[in-house]
Deep mutational scan, measured.
Amino acid sequence: QWIQSKREDIVNQMTEACLNQSLDALLSRDLIMKEDYELVSTKPTRTSKVRQLLDTTDIQGEEFAKVIVQKLKDNKQMGLQ
């Protein structure tokens, strides 16, 4: 999976804004449970939030991952090649 192969780059480069947009999009599509949303959003640092989101992606699967990839594209953060 692309996200896993780029995990380190995503953790380093995903902005707080992109992270929040991803969470909002996942929530609005019922792809993330409120508990998982809280787990991510209550982490103390941006990098720990991104790591938690990516860990959740492993469990949730492809549809979940597609939303995150789309948000990275929207925010022009796909220089993660």
Rank of each mutant, 00 (worst) to 15 (best):
Q1L: 07
W2L: 06
W2S: 06
W2G: 05
W2T: 04
I3L: 10
I3Q: 08
I3S: 02
I3R: 00
I3C: 13
Q4V: 02
Q4M: 15
Q4G: 03
Q4A: 13
S5V: 07
S5G: 11
S5D: 15
R7H: 03
R7L: 05
R7Y: 05
E8Q: 04
D9F: 06
I10A: 00
V11K: 02
V11L: 08
V11I: 15
V11S: 04
N12I: 06
N12R: 14
Q13E: 13
Q13F: 08
Q13G: 08
T15F: 01
T15E: 02
T15I: 00
E16A: 04
E16P: 05
E16Y: 04
E16R: 01
E16D: 14
E16T: 11
A17R: 12
A17Q: 15
A17G: 11
A17Y: 12
A17L: 11
A17K: 13
A17N: 11
A17V: 14
C18H: 02
C18A: 12
C18V: 14
C18L: 05
C18R: 04
C18Y: 01
C18I: 07
L19I: 14
L19M: 09
L19Y: 04
N20G: 11
N20C: 04
Q21W: 00
Q21T: 08
Q21K: 08
S22I: 15
S22L: 13
S22T: 15
L23Q: 07
L23I: 00
L23E: 06
D24F: 02
A25K: 02
A25W: 00
A25D: 12
A25E: 15
L26M: 03
L26T: 03
L27K: 13
L27S: 12
L27W: 10
L27N: 07
L27C: 03
S28L: 10
S28D: 08
S28V: 11
R29Q: 13
R29K: 14
R29D: 09
D30V: 03
D30K: 14
L31M: 10
L31E: 03
I32F: 01
M33I: 13
M33D: 15
M33Y: 06
M33K: 12
K34W: 10
K34Q: 14
E35W: 10
E35Y: 05
D36N: 03
D36F: 01
Y37E: 07
Y37R: 03
Y37I: 07
Y37P: 04
Y37C: 05
Y37W: 10
Y37H: 04
E38T: 11
E38R: 10
E38V: 10
E38K: 10
E38N: 06
E38W: 12
L39N: 13
L39Q: 08
L39S: 12
V40H: 15
V40N: 06
V40P: 02
S41W: 06
S41A: 14
S41N: 15
T42L: 10
T42D: 08
T42N: 12
T42A: 13
K43V: 08
K43P: 02
K43F: 06
P44L: 09
P44C: 06
P44Q: 11
T45M: 12
T45E: 08
T45D: 14
T45Y: 00
T45G: 08
R46S: 05
R46G: 04
R46T: 14
R46N: 09
R46E: 10
T47L: 08
T47N: 09
T47A: 15
T47H: 15
T47G: 11
S48E: 15
S48F: 05
K49G: 07
V50K: 00
V50C: 10
R51L: 10
R51I: 10
R51P: 05
Q52F: 07
Q52H: 06
Q52A: 15
L53R: 03
L53S: 03
L53C: 07
L54R: 06
L54Q: 03
L54H: 05
L54C: 06
D55G: 05
D55H: 03
D55R: 11
D55C: 12
D55A: 14
T56F: 14
T56E: 08
T57I: 14
T57G: 14
T57E: 12
T57K: 14
D58P: 15
D58S: 14
D58F: 14
D58T: 13
D58K: 10
I59R: 10
I59K: 15
Q60C: 13
Q60A: 12
G61N: 13
G61K: 14
E62N: 01
E63N: 03
E63Q: 06
E63V: 04
E63K: 06
F64V: 10
A65N: 07
A65E: 06
A65G: 04
K66E: 15
V67M: 03
V67N: 03
V67S: 00
V67K: 04
V69I: 13
V69E: 11
V69F: 13
Q70W: 03
K71W: 00
K71I: 12
K71L: 09
K71S: 14
K71F: 10
L72N: 13
K73C: 14
K73G: 12
D74Y: 11
D74M: 07
D74K: 03
D74T: 09
D74I: 10
N75S: 13
N75P: 06
N75Y: 09
K76G: 14
